[in-house]
């Protein structure tokens, strides 16, 4: 299982890019942290999620 924003999901083996395609996140507004490190956007298609990974997707909203 892969933990995404606190929820355990059965997506081990998928890349971050493949997982994001199944969601409604706007790619221009997010930062993705995996196991304590922020993943460069150029690596989303190459980073394969593994059992036990913990991922946090921050989706920024406007205002400041």
């Amino acid at each position: 299982m892969v933990k995404i924003n606190g929820e355990n999901l059965d997506i081990a083996g998928k890349t971050i890019a493949e997982y994001l395609l199944t969601t409604s996140y706007d790619a221009k507004r997010i930062a993705v942290e995996c196991n304590g490190a922020v993943i460069p956007k150029t690596q989303y298609g190459k980073t394969v999620l593994a059992d036990g990974d913990s991922v946090e997707i921050v989706s920024f909203v406007g205002g400041g």
């Binding site: 930062a31 922020v38 921050v58 920024f60 400041g64």
Partner: peptide, 28 residues
């Protein structure tokens, strides 16, 4: 102010400048 610019700064700083701390804001 803009969500896209917030994300751009966060991604750039946190992946290219690993010795910096970033304190960002979202939702106020």
């Amino acid at each position: 102010d803009r969500a896209e610019t917030k994300a751009m700064l966060a991604n750039t700083v946190l992946t290219a400048m690993p010795d910096k701390y970033l304190v960002a804001a979202s939702g106020m």
